[in-house]
Computed example of a mutant assay.
Amino acid sequence: MDVVSKVYGKGRNAVAALREVSIGLPRGGFTAVMGPSGSGKSTFLHCAAGLDRPTAGSVRLGGTELATMSETQLTVLRRARIGFVFQAFNLVPSLTVTQNITLPLRLAGTPVDRPWLAGILARVGLADRADHRPAQLSGGQQQRVAIARALVTRPEVVFGDEPTGALDTMTARDVLTLLRETVDQLGQTVVMVTHDPVAASYADTVLFLADGHIVDTMAAPSPVAVADRMTRLGAWVR
């Protein structure tokens, strides 16, 4: 992102969600994005992922400028080059695990790489659940299906929007460990919005947002350090 601003509404009703944000996210890294409610976290993710257009500024994925692409071009780009994991698992109830994972490929008309699919199923611990349907899986297993679906297209970046928000503590740790392993072992790039200092501690770097600005960053975060920084976000100085 280069000097990105996002304003919703016009005139007196205008709300600035992002204010001249400039940041580069490292390839092959795990970045967490934190901030209080209304700080611009979700808008940051939506603009970075091409789900929303900035009011001003430039958003690039690799060398590709997203802000000037048509909706059709953005749809194709997101399908081929970006993976998504949300708090809601967004699985199709009538499809099996394998069918849910390969759905992005089928929508794109791309052949399924069977060895890669088998490897992804094994990595997320679902090789013995390939023919099950979502209702036959736990919440943690369903989120693992969502992660596998995000990885199957070999995306350049995976965006997570509170991916552990609907999970209990132990299951959340399993999912976060899996995301960490995709970075360390597959070289995947992961960008995750979260409100949880423990979740953020799995990342390499934490970005802190307040009032639409990136106000701080933290490398090698610990849960205690992240929680302490969050309590002081209201006192930031530009």
Results as ranks from 00 to 15, higher is better:
G11D: 10
R12L: 12
N13L: 15
N13C: 10
N13I: 10
A16P: 07
A17Y: 07
A17S: 12
L18Q: 03
L18S: 05
L18H: 04
L18R: 07
E20R: 15
E20D: 15
V21D: 11
S22D: 13
S22Y: 03
S22I: 07
I23C: 02
G24Y: 08
P26Q: 11
R27Y: 05
R27L: 08
R27Q: 14
G28M: 01
F30R: 08
F30P: 00
T31Y: 03
V33F: 08
S37L: 01
G38I: 00
G38L: 09
G38D: 00
G38V: 01
G38N: 08
G38P: 05
S39A: 15
S39E: 01
S39F: 08
S42W: 03
T43P: 00
T43W: 07
T43V: 06
F44Q: 11
F44E: 13
F44A: 07
L45D: 03
L45T: 04
H46M: 14
C47Q: 11
C47F: 02
A48C: 14
A48D: 09
A48V: 11
G50F: 11
G50T: 00
L51D: 12
L51F: 14
D52F: 04
R53W: 15
P54H: 12
T55N: 09
S58N: 11
S58D: 15
V59Q: 09
V59R: 03
L61Y: 12
G62F: 09
G63D: 14
G63V: 03
T64F: 01
E65H: 09
E65I: 00
E65N: 05
A67G: 15
M69A: 07
M69V: 00
S70C: 09
S70Y: 03
T72N: 13
Q73G: 14
L74F: 10
T75P: 03
V76K: 11
V76I: 13
V76L: 11
R78L: 04
R78C: 00
R79N: 14
R81C: 02
F84E: 09
F84A: 01
F84C: 00
V85G: 01
V85S: 02
V85R: 09
F86I: 01
Q87C: 12
Q87Y: 11
A88P: 02
A88D: 14
F89P: 07
F89G: 11
N90I: 01
L91C: 12
V92W: 13
S94I: 09
V97R: 06
T98R: 13
N100E: 04
I101E: 08
I101C: 01
T102A: 06
T102N: 04
